[in-house]
Nucleic acid binder design. Structure first.
Lengths: 144, 144
DNA sequence: TATTGTTATACTCTATAACTATA
DNA sequence: TATAGTTATAGAGTATAACAATA
């Protein structure tokens, strides 16, 4: 039977393919939209964590994002070199680095938020607002 | 305003995060389910292309999957070493390799198809059949 | 002793460039 | 000259192990 074509034979119909390529398409659109602000989607994720929290340590940010602390070091190296974040030892525990958005970093982040919202809108433009709501809700359920 | 928490501040609510991690979760489940057959999700994709076509060249399979032909070489090296596929020069054009599933490879593929269907079912178990249909349909639309 | 950040290193995945053989 | 497959190599991304500073 596997030698006969059937309804599920098209590789592009496999759920894994659809999900992976949808994620890749959105990531590509996001990176392009954020490039003018000197960040990519991965950087934006870190900035989101920093922006809606009290100043956090590198480890806290890394754990929130689910990435290794050594990966966090390299990520912050770039953002710090660009003047988007600052690192300084936590006076209360000098093993930790307090990471904060700079003023220019905060402005870049605000602009990036607008661009990011626009990207999500453009990505979902082909479906109805209701379908978009359902899609997001389904994704949350599948990850729960 | 970006210093104030708001409804979109949780990194885990970002569509890009949801999509990426849904794709990763399904890929992990798929790899685990296919491991008993000596293949992973990426191998399974190649076997799907081989199984529902007349014997194809390496390049044809690679292009269908959207991967580089050099990547195809390494992928087939493994499958050939495991006895799942065979490669032989096409008599009609000896630059090409005809790639075919072996008998054991075909049996493994049939079993893998069952396991794969079960994985998709398990992945979607938390939502209704109708919602699963809509989800798949939405993904197709978003990639169109 | 345990933790945080850092560095060095390695591993995976994939692509580009160059080579061989065929056409 | 162009194409299919191969090989060598390089780049991106991320992780593990070892180390320094601090707790």
């Amino acid at each position: 039977m596997s030698t006969e074509p059937n309804g599920t034979a098209d590789p592009h119909e496999v759920l894994g393919y659809l999900l992976k390529h949808a994620a890749l398409k959105l990531a590509t659109m996001t990176d392009a939209a954020l490039a003018p602000f000197g960040i990519d989607g991965k950087d934006f994720g870190a900035l989101r964590v920093l922006a809606h929290r009290e100043p956090a340590s590198q480890l806290q940010v890394a754990q929130t994002l689910g990435i290794d602390r050594t990966t966090m070091v390299a990520l912050l190296d770039v953002l710090e070199r660009k003047g988007i974040v600052t690192r300084r030892p936590d006076p209360a525990d000098r093993r930790r680095n307090v990471v904060e958005l700079t003023e220019p970093g905060l402005r870049a982040f605000d602009a990036a938020q607008v661009a990011h919202a626009e990207v999500e809108r453009a990505f979902l433009a082909g479906i109805s607002p209701g379908a978009a709501q359902d899609f997001r809700s389904t994704l949350r359920t599948l990850l729960a």
